[in-house]
Design a protein around this nucleic acid. Structure first.
Lengths: 407, 407
DNA sequence: AAGACTTTTTCCAAGCCTCGTAAAAAATGG
DNA sequence: CCATTTTTTACGAGGCTTGGAAAAAGTCTT
């Protein structure tokens, strides 16, 4: 058997149509001419493809504003047709579910957040809750939405490699919960279930400053998680869907982690780890440490509280060594940081960089760019939405050329 | 700008020709019909492509032996034409250079190994040495070789991301040595310079048991290195070309490593680390520890020598924790082990598995398959040769359709 | 040993994309 | 109001794959 699949006319059409859609994702409004320039396609091909996509209702002609007295025939603006589809990004975390509804052009239509004690929910209850959330989003969007075409559920915890359910989550008591199939049955939309941290890089899929860039997203808060963007692909493991950065061992036989092992990065750098270290206990708090408590600890550290200062220092070192290990294995990568850790970045950054310097070969990566993103929810919604839209784009590009209708 | 390149007829042809070549790499001899089945191409297309490649001299018709009284017209055997090209795999290590010459079908034509003190060689001397090695290989092959088309140099140490030279090597005193350009000038063949450990997965590129499989190659010996095969691609970093597994930190502030940092895996698991631990010293031996010395230490450990036993135990734990960290980040992967570590595998394997169990989430991967490859040189030659041939295949598949010659 | 049957190859018309060029369309400028 | 510039559409051509028919080259049966 050959690993390489054959290529034929259909593959070519799909690929080039996708290239056109991908370009429009980046620039949002373009013309046939500039599509041709950006994709490398001839103007004829660009025009033909645009025409086909327009007939399908995937694209629409829009008014360009930049009529800045340029000579010649003005290009007709092309843009993704918002009405072509509707996607939902749902987020499932400890004690809360939330979601965002967006149209095919990526414009948000509605957003919602509910504090719910889902710990004891089983599969059926969870699916009902998520379906209900989608309903609430649609009614909040009034008439501006259409039936859902794609739903992406980002969950705290381990998801299965088929993107179909949850293996384990700190938010839930039950394990191995199937989500995709039953939720699809209820909503009529394709459903993918992913780990919240591992999808995060998708948020930057069409952002010009990240084009073609390898980078990592790092979440430091309730837990510690990472998303990896390598050679243009968001890394998804085979076994689970997560880069379990928080559970990379930091110190053999070290502090007890929630996962049962000793010495994980999370056992030093997550909220509960910082909290217990500052409070001088070895126990893992049963309750969730609130972001405000971390703020307060950071304030204390700034004010000279030795225990709090040490807690943040050890957290930073653990993160730094973890990053150093990743950099040694993969490559030094720019880091997008989010979570409660952002609030204490003044405490963390110097020690993180020290940790990298001490653990990476030649200290390479100690000066890597660190980009802060305060709003974790927005980041996850952006990411899950981008993931959903990319999946739709792929489907649309593959679909058969519309039947010739007019005589 | 769009990240997606356009696709046209030329791309299609190149892709499908490559699919045919790729299939022939796996099965070595095939027919037009079975090429069609394996690639998914129609019989017509398979036949047309084969005809074109035959005219180019890239393929040749061969006699099939398995004339096992099957009915119907027998298929004409198709195989890669050995004479179509000639590649050299060179290996540069501490105190020795070696190489293998192969034809386009991958059949070895000559092999050579020279113990040379290259420590003080500069770029010019090194290039001369390598060029001379190629000359010796060709004369050893008698008339069966043709001018070289591609040369791959596998070096112990860090190579640059352009695959053009050596950043640093334990075998050399000089740094930043440019190899590709001057060697190409001398030989007239394309040259790529890669890290020996990171190319190793290429050795399994066309092996059926590894088809589509993600796995890692692990070298434990003079140093500790790793090669990663992930989603069908051999991982090559951007910055260097290596997965610096040996320098992933094991214990913060731990044993001194050759790289200057403290606590690297290599500082526990490489030959010099095992040797110094068994001898009760902290110093890094200036000389290279010979494989026989490791054998002797393993024998001593088996006979009950406590210091030797501890040395191997700590080495195994370091490797196990290192693997656990990799598995946590990427995925549990089957491991192909090579180097002097193979000789002491009875001492190492149990502790390696214990290390994985203690450091990976849920101990996942502690039972990962461990495949032993005693002959490191052969593995590197296989890998570098496969890499070279794959590069040629890509070039051949892209080259213009041969000019129609016959009337 | 000749004809029937099977399987592999080759040959040829057709289809689908893309490409390049020419013509048409839609604005600006003098 | 006409020349100029720029974008879009229209049309013929080329390349590669496809599917079916015909040819080729064996084995099996009578």
């Amino acid at each position: 058997m050959s690993r390489l699949a054959k290529t034929d006319a259909e593959t070519v059409r799909a690929h080039n149509r996708l290239a056109v859609l991908d370009h429009l994702r980046r620039v949002s409004v373009s013309t046939r001419k500039s599509v041709s320039e950006a994709t490398g396609l001839s103007v004829s091909a660009s025009s033909a493809i645009s025409a086909s996509l327009l007939r399908c209702g995937i694209l629409e002609e829009v008014e360009e504003d930049d009529r800045s007295n340029r000579r010649g025939r003005p290009g007709k603006g092309l843009g993704l047709s918002g009405g072509a589809a509707c996607v939902a990004a749902l987020k499932l975390a400890v004690g809360e579910v939330s979601g965002r509804l967006s149209d095919y052009a990526g414009r948000p239509l509605a957003e919602i957040r509910r504090e719910v004690d889902i710990a004891s929910h089983d599969g059926a209850a969870l699916v009902m809750l998520l379906a209900d959330l989608c309903g609430a989003l649609r009614s909040q969007a009034q008439g501006r939405s259409r039936p859902l075409d794609k739903v992406v559920v980002a969950v705290q915890g381990k998801t299965d490699s088929g993107l179909s359910g949850i293996v384990w989550s700190p938010a839930l008591r039950h394990r191995d919960i199937e989500i995709a199939a039953p939720l699809t049955a209820r909503l009529g939309a394709e459903v993918s279930v992913l780990n919240d941290c591992s999808v995060m890089p998708e948020a930057f899929r069409w952002q010009p400053d990240f084009a073609g860039l390898d980078f990592a997203t790092l979440f430091v808060g309730f837990g510690v998680g990472m998303g990896l963007q390598i050679s243009g692909e968001t890394f998804q493991g085979k076994r689970s869907s997560a880069v379990e950065f928080g559970h990379i061992n930091h110190v053999p036989g070290g502090a007890l982690c929630r996962c049962g092992n000793r010495g994980c990065v999370e056992a030093y750098a997550s909220d509960y780890a910082i909290w217990r270290r500052a409070k001088g206990t070895d126990e893992i708090a049963a309750r969730r440490i609130r972001d405000e408590e971390i703020h307060a600890l950071a304030e204390a550290a700034r004010a000279g509280d030795a225990a709090a200062a040490t807690a943040f220092e050890e957290a930073g070192i653990a993160i730094g060594y973890g990053l150093g290990r990743v950099f040694t294995m993969i490559d030094p990568l720019p880091i997008v940081l989010t979570g409660s850790g952002v609030q204490a970045i003044d405490r963390l950054e110097p020690v993180i960089r020290r940790g990298i310097a001490e653990s990476a070969v030649d200290g390479l990566g100690a000066d890597t760019p660190l980009i802060l993103e305060e709003d974790t929810d927005a980041l996850v919604f952006d990411a899950a939405t981008a993931y959903a839209l990319a999946a739709l784009d792929k489907g649309f590009s593959r679909s058969a050329p519309e039947a010739t209708e007019a005589a």
